[in-house]
Amino acid sequence: MAQTLETLSRRTDTLGSIRSIVHTMKTMSAINAVPYEHAARSIESYHQTVLDGLRAFVAKTGPVSVPDVAQAERLLVVFGSDHGLCGNYNEILAESARSESLKAGSPARVLCVGARMGDALGDQGIRPEFTFLPPASADGIGRLASDIVTRLDEIGGGDVHNRIAVTLVFTRRADKGQREPEISQLLPLEPTLLSDSGASGWHSRSLADYTMPPAPLFAALLRNHIFASVFRASAEAMVTENAARLALMQQAEQAVDDRLEEVGGQFRLVRQDEITNELMDIIVGFEALKKPSVVHSSSS
């Protein structure tokens, strides 16, 4: 009986330690998500400025021709994780990437972010051409975005607008704390950005103008558009990764609490049985001490 109590006591201590670790990881996930969320919001303002610049360029120069997507080389950039404890985060996104890759009949070239995403893509029969390291903090998002932009520029031979069709695949936040895969076309640019008609026109009492040569100006605007889009996708992916880890840690914490309650109940039952047995031993001993005295009195 004493051994059983000792075992249950050790289990309680172990579960308490596990709960402390889980609670710490849950807190870190909640804290880590905040800077990435701020980064995702801040890049939107910068991206909007770049888009306004593209519209101003088109308003001054005239419509830019849209390349034929069918003739461009297809690339997927898939944003995953490099750390575990986030459930099936990578596996769900890898399935979406596989479906997108096979849309045109032949597999697309794939760049991925995160070693675990690379493994998940491998399980889907996709071998990434290159795997980037995900950002360790919000400050690292710019580094990752620059690396991806540079790699795309190398693949496109300096003419990404006409030579490659790029799609971003990442996980974004959905309603009611949920998350879902997002597939966003990055290149070629949307026709509405390159035409000077309708809602995409330049709406201002001041005429758009620039002094740079058109070719390098368009290349700079395009590069910044790609950078901002990749930056936002990376930040959104990191927010949802930490949210997935937070949800998993909450489930784990609840499971540990339930197990602690169960072990605590077992401990109390065993302890009560021990107390009952000890009381019975006392009563039996007391009765045993009384009997000789009664017999001696009767004999007298």
Rank of each mutant, 00 (worst) to 15 (best):
L76V: 01
W202N: 11
P213K: 14
F132L: 03
A145G: 05
T12C: 08
E287F: 15
I155S: 00
G53V: 06
G122T: 11
V284G: 00
C86L: 12
N277L: 13
A108S: 15
L111Y: 14
S99K: 15
L189S: 09
L8F: 06
V256W: 01
S299H: 08
E129V: 07
V239K: 05
F218T: 00
V270F: 06
D82H: 13
I275D: 08
S146K: 10
K60S: 09
C86I: 08
T24L: 13
D147K: 11
R173K: 08
A108M: 00
L5Y: 02
N32K: 15
R259S: 13
D196M: 04
E44T: 14
H38E: 12
L152G: 04
A237Y: 02
R98P: 03
E241K: 11
S29E: 10
W202I: 09
R268C: 06
P188L: 06
R232A: 07
L279S: 10
I92Y: 01
Q124L: 03
R19E: 14
G87F: 06
T211E: 11
E91N: 10
H83Q: 14
A30M: 11
S297D: 12
R74P: 06
D82A: 15
A94Y: 00
L194Q: 09
I226R: 01
K176D: 09
S106Y: 03
S200P: 08
Y210K: 06
L260C: 01
V169P: 02
F130W: 07
A30F: 08
L279P: 01
E261A: 15
G84A: 14
F218V: 03
R74T: 02
R232N: 10
S45Y: 10
G285C: 10
G16Q: 10
V77L: 13
E182Q: 15
A165Y: 02
A208E: 08
V58Q: 06
Q3K: 14
P214R: 01
I18Y: 12
M212N: 12
A233Y: 03
E37R: 14
L76E: 02
E262N: 05
V166F: 00
H296V: 11
M25V: 03
S197C: 05
E129Y: 10
S99T: 13
E44Y: 07
R151E: 05
E129N: 09
A228W: 04
L246P: 02
R232C: 00
T7Q: 14
N90Q: 04
L222I: 03
M238K: 09
R163A: 05
D139R: 12
A247D: 15
R268Y: 09
F130N: 02
V294D: 12
G140R: 01
E95L: 03
E278W: 00
L152Q: 01
E95A: 11
I183T: 11
V230F: 00
A30V: 09
S96E: 14
L193R: 08
Q178K: 09
